[in-house]
Amino acid sequence: MIVGLPTTTREYFWTKHGGSTEDLSSRESPLQPMKSDEILVKIHAVSLQFSDLLVGAGRYPLKMPEHLIPCSDMAGEVIAAGDDAGSEWKTGDRVCANFAADHIAGETTLEIQKTAYGGSRHGVLTQYKSFRPHSLVRIPEHLSFEEACTLPCAALTAYSALTGPTPVKSGDTVLILGTGGVSIHGLQFALASGARVIATSSSDEKLKIITKLGAHHVINYKRTPEWHENVLELTDGRGVDHILEVGGAGSLEHSLKCIRIGGWIHIIGFVGGGTPTNVVSASILKSCYLRGIQIGSVAQFKDMNRLLTLHPEITRPVIDKVFPFEEARQAFVYLRSQAHVGKIVIKLA
């Protein structure tokens, strides 16, 4: 037994399933003793995902623990390692945990999906947490804890999409919908790969920001409801090679109209609304690929970090706002407003 380790942790939890941000509360809890094959981590920063709101509202078809601790994405430092935890991690190492603890490499499975933090198992919005060594990934040296905590879900989702069966390549055209975390990371990875990027938003102010980040063309979809026509004009009628589809039903029909023949629509989220029509016939006519994305593996995480290190400035995470731990509920409210560009972070330490 290691002497001097913390025995309690401050954490947030959902007081009930299917509630609102008002049902997010905090407490001081006994810290479960670290097992001999685990690594104890002091969590410095946590980033929020749109899915965190959906989980709290009971809109995810998951079997969740009672009084679920939310959030999947963290960055922290190792403060202890069990005797049977191997030699890879030592005190002071800076680490992130993968979104699904047991997704080491290759395709996911139903059992792997059940190891996702902040859903099927308790999440990371807590001061201290133990992890199995295989679920941890070293943080690139040039990133702060606040920047690194954006990597496990948003960055890795974008990376998994754009490096899938047909990876994005120099000269491709990539369509990015919106300005949330996945979209901004996708913009950066596409640019780092030499692709041309078209980006959409309902806000001219947000479009100015993503133009500064490197987007080649921007479209205000609120002023241009048939925005797919603009995309086709920008590609001389060919359509785009890849689409990061975060809108879901509200935007999928438009995406199907501006994907090139044989292109890839990476289905990532459903922050939009509406019910698409003629989706089946449109996808058959385009012979395109609709690819559902479920984050990525530890192996992909390590590959992505090499890209981040190779292109440190173009891929640096974009953080909209950092909230102190005591204002976590306000961070969730801000997330719900969708006023942000990039990521929302809660600083614990």
Rank of each mutant, 00 (worst) to 15 (best):
K63F: 04
C149G: 04
A116S: 15
R138G: 08
V95P: 05
V124Y: 05
T166Q: 13
F99N: 01
H185T: 08
D93V: 03
G181Q: 04
G194A: 06
S120G: 14
E147N: 00
P65I: 09
A101R: 13
Q188H: 15
L143G: 02
L125V: 12
T91A: 13
R138C: 04
T126K: 13
Y117I: 02
G164Q: 13
P140H: 04
P70D: 07
V78M: 14
G82H: 07
L143S: 10
R196K: 15
I69H: 02
E66F: 11
S120E: 10
Y159M: 05
W89D: 09
A155G: 15
V137G: 00
E146N: 07
E146R: 01
L62P: 00
S160T: 13
K169V: 12
T179W: 01
I69W: 03
F99S: 02
F189R: 05
S144C: 09
V174F: 09
L177E: 14
G106W: 03
R196I: 03
G164A: 15
P133M: 07
T150L: 00
V78G: 14
D83K: 08
A97T: 04
A195D: 10
Y128W: 02
P152I: 07
H142M: 11
P61L: 00
D73W: 06
A192I: 05
K169P: 00
A155N: 07
L187M: 14
I69N: 06
G82N: 11
D93G: 11
G106P: 08
G164Y: 09
K169W: 02
D93T: 11
Q188C: 01
G92T: 07
E66M: 09
G86C: 10
L62F: 15
A57D: 08
V95S: 00
S120Q: 05
D84G: 05
R132S: 13
K90R: 14
E111C: 06
K169Y: 00
Q127S: 12
A75F: 05
T179P: 09
D172I: 06
I139R: 15
A80Y: 07
K169F: 02
L68Q: 02
G58E: 04
A85Y: 01
G186D: 06
H122I: 02
R59T: 01
L136H: 03
V168E: 01
I198C: 13
A85C: 04
A57P: 01
S193Y: 03
G194E: 08
P61N: 10
G178Q: 06
A195T: 09
T126C: 09
K63Y: 02
V95D: 00
G118P: 06
Y117M: 15
A85H: 03
G178W: 09
S144H: 03
I112N: 04
Q113Y: 09
A190Q: 08
E88K: 13
L187Q: 10
Q188G: 09
S170A: 15
A192K: 08
